[in-house]
Nucleic acid binder design. Structure first.
Lengths: 178, 178
DNA sequence: TTGAACCTATATCGGATTGATATATAAGAT
DNA sequence: ATCTTATATATCAATCCGATATAGGTTCAA
């Protein structure tokens, strides 16, 4: 799945500027399973415009720079439906944290605690974001599905790490008492 | 975390060829949280050799092509310890599946079922891989930590999807009965 | 027996993507 | 006054993926 399809997907839910799309993938419900940078979003929107899958209109704003608002066309909706009606590729998950834990013999217990706490903070931040999005009563079934899946997975990660953290703290105090 | 650090990490556990590193990343305990292609592994190994962080030796094999076995040096171990003693970057998770579910209004129920089943198969495949690795009694505490975390998260995903799948099947039979 | 399919092994390259940076405007804080 | 933060678009070097090329060896059924 490339950034072009990602943009079509977001624009199928609401028209938006490049900046807003970036914000959606950074802070919205999308944030915990999608990523894209300005360097890929802006070229993608330009290409989609040329291909006729989206239209642009410049919108003046008071107190803010003008923005280009992109809207999906019928051709774009067809292209989107076609692009997502495939067997999904396997999830990609990259974790610097787990890589560190795998090599924890090279780390001090203090550094390990810092890493675990960072991971817990990250997971709880995502959970808070999902909880916030779930407030919205008129949320569609799609976002609800994604939110529930995310909640289940993140909660399991938090539980596991809270346990690991307590174990580590016990070990550290035991060692300090010697 | 770049591919150079990844290679150093793997070589700190065992000496290996570029091909073996790729296999580890694809099928080993690493597989569900790390990814790297030949196109990044081979250049990384060459660079690490020049930098003096690894050494190479050619090894002849009967019945197989010769291989270049890479070993980590003391300088390499120091560089590794330094590289992983940092606050870890946030996990990156990309899911084509969740993107599809978010836009499920553009999909048929049949296609949705296919996607959910694919995701279940992927999760169960990872769980099986972890179970297989956990057989090893002399597994260090690092791999055990990672295996337990992976097990917790993946199991939660499977439970959630099994429920979603049963709900969808009910809806489909109900609709067919009309 | 032969050739199709598959495994080990290294290497390269086009194209996609990231992360950082540049530019511009304006609100709000100190 | 000046600093930080937010909106908004754009570009680019460095990195990385996915596919492909090459080459020798094994297995096994037609």
């Amino acid at each position: 799945m490339n950034v072009r399809t990602l943009c079509l997907g977001i624009l199928s839910l609401q028209e938006a500027s490049g900046y807003q799309i970036k914000k959606d993938v950074e802070e919205g419900l999308f944030s915990h399973f999608i990523d894209a940078s300005y360097g890929s979003i802006y070229p993608a929107l330009n290409q989609l415009t040329v291909e006729g899958y989206v239209t642009v209109r410049a919108e003046e704003q008071t107190g803010k720079p003008d923005k280009k608002v992109y809207s999906i066309t019928e051709a774009g909706k067809n292209a989107l439906a076609k692009a997502i009606s495939v067997v999904p590729a396997k999830d990609k998950y990259k974790s610097e944290f787990l890589f560190q834990m795998l090599l924890k013999d090279y780390m001090t217990p203090e550094m390990m605690l810092v890493a675990i706490q960072k991971q817990l903070d990250d997971l709880n931040e995502d959970l808070a974001r999902i909880a916030e999005c779930s407030q919205d009563e008129n949320m569609g079934t799609g976002p609800r599905f994604v939110g529930e899946y995310g909640h289940a997975v993140l909660t399991a990660g938090v539980s596991c790490l809270e346990y690991k953290k307590s174990q580590l703290l016990q070990q550290m105090t035991a060692r300090a008492a010697e």
